[in-house]
Design a binder for these strands. Sequence first.
DNA 1: CTGAAAGCGCTAACAT
DNA 2: ATGTTAGCGCTTTCAG
Lengths: 342, 342
Amino acid sequence: MTQIQPTPPGRATLKDIARAVGVDVSTVSKVLNDGVISVRESTRQAIIDEAARVNYRPHALARNLRTQRTGALGILLPDLTNPVYAATVRGAMRQAELAGYVMLVAEVADERTSAAAYLKLVSERRIDGLIIAVTAESKEMIDAIQGSPVPHVFVNRRSTVGRSVTVDDQASGRLAARTLIEAGHKRLAFIGSSPELDTSQRRRAGFVEACEAAGLPPVVAAVGPVSRRGGFDALNRLLSEPTHPTGVFAFNMLVGIGAAAAARVRGVRVPQDLSIVTLDGDDAIFTSPPLTAIATPLGEMGARAVVELDAMIHGREPQDVVIDIPPQLIVRESVGPPPPEA
Amino acid sequence: MTQIQPTPPGRATLKDIARAVGVDVSTVSKVLNDGVISVRESTRQAIIDEAARVNYRPHALARNLRTQRTGALGILLPDLTNPVYAATVRGAMRQAELAGYVMLVAEVADERTSAAAYLKLVSERRIDGLIIAVTAESKEMIDAIQGSPVPHVFVNRRSTVGRSVTVDDQASGRLAARTLIEAGHKRLAFIGSSPELDTSQRRRAGFVEACEAAGLPPVVAAVGPVSRRGGFDALNRLLSEPTHPTGVFAFNMLVGIGAAAAARVRGVRVPQDLSIVTLDGDDAIFTSPPLTAIATPLGEMGARAVVELDAMIHGREPQDVVIDIPPQLIVRESVGPPPPEA
DNA sequence: CTGAAAGCGCTAACAT
DNA sequence: ATGTTAGCGCTTTCAG
């Protein structure tokens, strides 16, 4: 009489199987890990059958302790409710699953908590590798990262203390500027972040470069927190100046949405009075008006970060990667010619 | 000469400390775990000093294998880029950190992958408890959950196979209806989800109840996927009927945003031609117009789920909890009187 | 082709 | 007040 109730998964151990089949646990281990040829077919079958019968699952912890690998990856990010990070995490998680990892997510508010979360994950040896989606330029953080034996890769950020996966942000900046310039705008502005965000600096550099190439005066670069609120406030400041820009490039979707809200509140019509180009895409289609944006392959970056991490974990040489999808303009309704009087 | 380089954290073991101080590892373990009084002050100090010097961190895996607890919680959710889930996860993660857990997150596309992810986390024994933010009514999933020894709690969902943390969704539905009714609307609609989402059913029930209490005809209940696209399509269908509703209650923010976009595309002005009430809040302030919404304490639900899970893990009796923050209306700009001809 | 033995780093009875 | 012992479940030489 075999048991009628299905055995709950994950409760049987190698020892149980070994006892049932009448072999040693090491034999069971070999068979189940599939690596070894030198097992008689009949015992192999018996073991496999019994394992199936009791619904055997390896105990991850025990295996990990032995192999010194956890099968887990970590990701450090500043804000889960920010769709930019959510999309990145999603891409990373999908790839992680393909590569057989589970994903530990830590949301960190600032550099202090970053370092703490980092230490918790890394020094307790909970993960095999770490994706860093926060800016990590505090001394505390740099020290922690540099002293660490755990592979790590920055995503959508560059850093002196590690490899990174990014896109060609300068090209995005140039494309944004050219889009506005071709629509006829002469007074352009970039709404970016505070200086420590290297990604923003590169987009700005590309933007400025294209402006100068077109012989346009130096652009105003409003700066603030990267958030809807930040975009809202920044555009508000910009619009309160006497001759304000007629075309703005918003660092990312959140900033763009905030900017659009500010325009609306001030009675500035988009795109009749003001054109907006933003970045990162998908969500911007449901704003009003839908925002013209430059697609950023966030998910690909996350996925690629996992690929690199996996390579490092397997001892391969890490390298910086710049995803070579050229920036692509998604034309929607927030860009038009400048208003006549401008 | 002590070492000049800071010792990398997490590399020293109990054995190293024991050897350096000249005691047994078990003594070190006792001291560092703080539970025991019976240790001479001088040795205690020596141990603590040495531990600090080598920057000792316990090896989570080894400890876990021994104690049979992982110090990790899992969460299963359908869509990270959905701000509703992002907010829930965030609340859960904050509370998890306070309670000393790390958080494993798994995004699952459907019931099939749910079951697989579930099994991966649970049967490999990677987590002490699981938060379930997906609807889990497939036989596959129910079987997996029921046979499982791992505590689990549903969040923002109810289920026959486990405890849950929810809010009073019927009250939210009633409040939404009353808001519209008090503004003068007579033709109301609820845009909800397909029937398997119990949360949607409760909101709908409350909505219908309040309509009937006001003597209003049975409401149309559009149904579709819970997403911007779903809200968009649903309102589109609604508006293409000859006498369409003048006030709609959207199941959540995403649906509300999609509905607003659909109105805009059809040239239906909000709130002059159509009033919209939605749920879940924060993001809705940056839409155009800002959407009047009923606040839903997503973060609290996530946090409370962790509290309940922690209780279960420590052997306390689980219970269903309904967060007793009454639904609160956030008045913005998407509700007004019905158009005159209606 | 299979088994015995050792050990990953830690904790917890139980001795002394 | 401290050490001894045993073992969590697994993998991995090394012998037979």
